[in-house]
Design a protein around this nucleic acid. Structure first.
Length: 265
DNA sequence: CTCAGTGTTCAGTG
DNA sequence: TCACTGAACACTGA
């Protein structure tokens, strides 16, 4: 689930649940894969009795600003999520971290596939993995000329470039496909081959898709009905858009890609 | 039973 | 070194 809109929604909900409150207890699952470079117990010690000042996001990374460093960071990978609930409710399956805060509020990081990561950083924005992240596509999207300059430097397929987190932080597989579909661009086109007009269109569609998805809290049932999103996975054979245009699946940038040849050139 | 997946990293290639 | 590709990682559900 987790591309920028899902992560931003998780950020807002986590902030609503915990902002201004003190963490009274921390439980950690013994998972050396998900806890990167720290022991779960050290992580728990860093959070216990701290107050949550804010929950922040850049690209697909989240972190909690506390009243003392270091700060906990979360990346959802393919299957990570936050679960919010109250004292006494059952702890969800696949939990990795459970925080209990003042007021009976709980937040748990879950991750069945274990490709997510939990980290501890003193200065999240100035250390790996955030330090090498590109612009956030919701908060810091460059203007059209700057975007054109960036794209002109890359000969890889435009879809692969959109997925590059050191450039377009927050874009994932479905956003890339949706934006290229709406912009009318073949995902295999070298990024450097786009005209000024095409870059402008790409930028507008990217901004719109991300904003709208965030505006409905990443609830895909509320995405506009015209979006490719709703049709990209329904039966691969014979899939088509609402207008009856065939959807073709291919691999671009190492990822399964949904492409409508009659609309994307 | 096999395979693909809303992601990232790293080894290998040219 | 750089730009880029493809496999690996781990697990669930179709």
């Amino acid at each position: 689930m987790p591309e920028l809109p899902e992560v931003e929604t998780a950020r807002r909900r986590a902030e609503h649940q915990l902002k201004g409150r003190r963490i009274v207890s921390v439980r950690v699952a013994p998972d050396p894969l998900v806890f990167e470079g720290i022991s779960p117990s050290r992580f728990a010690t860093a959070l216990r009795a701290r107050r949550v000042v804010a929950v922040r996001r850049r690209g697909k990374h989240l972190w909690m600003e506390l009243d003392r460093r270091p700060f906990p960071m979360f990346h959802f990978g393919m299957s990570g999520a936050f679960a919010l609930y109250r004292d006494g409710d059952p702890r969800p399956r696949f939990w990795k971290v459970e925080l209990a805060a003042e007021g009976g509020r709980r937040l748990t990081f879950t991750d069945p596939r274990r490709l997510g990561r939990v980290r501890l950083r003193r200065n999240p924005e100035h250390e790996a993995p955030l330090a090498k992240l590109g612009f956030d596509v919701l908060d810091d999207l460059p203007d059209a000329p700057a975007l054109a300059a960036i794209l002109s430097r890359h000969g890889a397929p435009v879809k692969a470039v959109l997925l590059d987190q050191s450039l377009f932080a927050g874009v994932g597989n479905w956003i890339a496909d949706e934006v290229l579909y709406q912009a009318g661009l073949d995902p295999r086109r070298p990024a450097s081959s786009l005209s000024r007009e095409e870059v402008g269109q790409l930028r507008l569609r990217l901004r719109d898709v991300v904003r709208r998805a965030v505006a409905v809290n990443a609830d895909s049932a509320r995405f506009p009905r015209t979006w490719l999103f709703h049709r990209r996975w329904g039966r691969k054979e014979g899939a088509h858009t609402a207008r009856g245009e065939p959807i073709v699946h291919l691999t671009v940038g190492g990822r399964t890609t949904a492409w409508v040849p009659s609309r994307q050139r």
